[in-house]
Design a protein around this nucleic acid. Sequence first.
DNA 1: TGAAACGGATGAATCGATTCATTATCGTGC
DNA 2: GCACGATAATGAATCGATTCATCCGTTTCA
Lengths: 348, 348
Amino acid sequence: MSTTTRGRADRRPSITDVAKRAGVSVGTVSNVLNRPDQVSDSTRDRVLVAIEELQFVRNASARQLRAGTIQTVGAIVLDIANPFFTEVARGVEDRLAADEYTLMLSSSDEDPEREARYLRLFEEHGVQGVMVTPSAGSLDGLLALRDRGIDVVLLDTTSPVDDISSVAVDDVRGGALAVEHLVSLGHTRIAFINGPQTIKQCVDRREGVLAALAAAGLDPADALVEITIGSLNAEGGEDGVNRLLDADGDRPTAMFCVNDLTALGALRALRAHGVAIPAEMAVVGYDDVVFASMLTVPLTSVRQPTHQLGWTAADLLLRQRSEGASFQHQRIQFQPELVVRGSSDPSA
Amino acid sequence: MSTTTRGRADRRPSITDVAKRAGVSVGTVSNVLNRPDQVSDSTRDRVLVAIEELQFVRNASARQLRAGTIQTVGAIVLDIANPFFTEVARGVEDRLAADEYTLMLSSSDEDPEREARYLRLFEEHGVQGVMVTPSAGSLDGLLALRDRGIDVVLLDTTSPVDDISSVAVDDVRGGALAVEHLVSLGHTRIAFINGPQTIKQCVDRREGVLAALAAAGLDPADALVEITIGSLNAEGGEDGVNRLLDADGDRPTAMFCVNDLTALGALRALRAHGVAIPAEMAVVGYDDVVFASMLTVPLTSVRQPTHQLGWTAADLLLRQRSEGASFQHQRIQFQPELVVRGSSDPSA
DNA sequence: TGAAACGGATGAATCGATTCATTATCGTGC
DNA sequence: GCACGATAATGAATCGATTCATCCGTTTCA
């Protein structure tokens, strides 16, 4: 089988093959690739022709092995299918592109094991840093990672330690905003569809919920019905509502869902059960994703600066990298904003 | 600074460091990592202790350089923020997990250049195969990739050549379904918000649109108003509607949007212009994404088997890999299904 | 004419993990 | 006491790109 018509390559051509074909040394080929101006025109052309003829493609492994490091950072979010996180990721990418870094993006699906697996994978591949929305309660793994020379920035959660930076939105305030709103509408019995307490966002929003209830003089024992779901998506929301409606006791007149995807599922289940919104059940979500305003019943939600969140996290990571020891760790916190719509307030 | 309290590693510990610390050879450390049963218990323990103490993490570059290949495949979709593609990607992951392959996932954002860049990146990293939803018209790059030994499967588009497999949904039929439906409701002037003709899905759906019009005895010159938008997302849809409403001539009474994200934007713009749906404008989308049924006006859409699409593409890729030369290339095509809702049919 | 300077090209050393032919050690059986 | 086999451990070679000290050939200038 000839070289040009072969159906499948026997082996990837290496820089040595190119050198042989062009009649130069491997060093020269490398120079053509990395410092073209140090090579004479004629030699460069010969090498380029050989590269073209052999369809040579650089071997990233060999490159990285020698270089020791790559212009890449990793990011792990809770759920890549959640529009909130895709918007955050877009912000990350935009900042990274400016410094010609690339991104390895993964979704932990809120599973600490998956998170750990991806972190290890990133580390083995030699990323310079990672942005993580932790799904586990403990930061030990991340601290160890940091000690091994990989910069860490927490994404969408406030750092509990002084020596790791974070970029977040004030989730306590966000949770409070939602419940203050419901209370101001006269609701005194509120369901809270929340995720596991291993996830910081869930903990913080809950704290805000409790604070708002306390401020209104309501006793959580009477005023709050908590439902914990396994995953923060539409299925979780449906499941939460089904369990709520099956339960004994006074049915709440309002509901706060820990995010919009959950709210979407909750709305679907509520409709299936013929529960009128907001008349029989007011609903508030969190994130203000793109479709929140366009639902059958437009969803009241807590808005967050998604793109900015991602952009800032990436910025912090890159600066931490470039400034080295002089870098000051910081906890950046944005403020959320309540957007009132028909799902909670008929007059909206 | 001592080893245990150092704030930042000077250098990643290598297998040699571990060997030194454990008082064994590098070969033995490698054996502990890869063939633990060929090592005596006491030696293995010593090595494991050293690994733990040094916080040793394998260097993926060196590993791959030696191995020559990795259990990884790449996938490039048009828009990772589109729920359609996240569901497809989930299908891919589920199939890959069964064979312990990992996935590198990227979004071309419908930009042929980005697509080419990611393909090259994947290739440099030594992926075994790629699944691509092409954004460029030409397949030359993919054919060349295939010739260099990287398996290729087209995702969500039917292969135009015999020697590349594909998994797709019949987009011609899907486009026809949408327009047949609108015609059956009595519409004789229909807007088609479509993407660039470099994207195969756009070409095919358009072909279906034209076929359905022809079958109904309608002349496209009168019956069809085509609007071409730059990107297949909500912004594109808004833009399309604005241009449609600004245009001279009879305003269409119905609209087919090339996908649901576009339809979402279109609905938003139509509402902003005070156009009643479906009374003044019937709307049909494509993909039947999760929120389509839950919009203010539930969206009529063309449903596709997303998860199955991704799963099957990955299956084809892995089988192609394992069966080698005996593998028969195939074009797998699923059938779409029209889901009628209120945005087109008030009685639905 | 000879020395210095300079642009180009060279090729051996290097990165870290894996592999495999070789060696070392020990126990078993005759 | 010796040979043999089995089990463990070794360490040199390898993968492919990069780097850098070195070398070569020209040109320039004293």
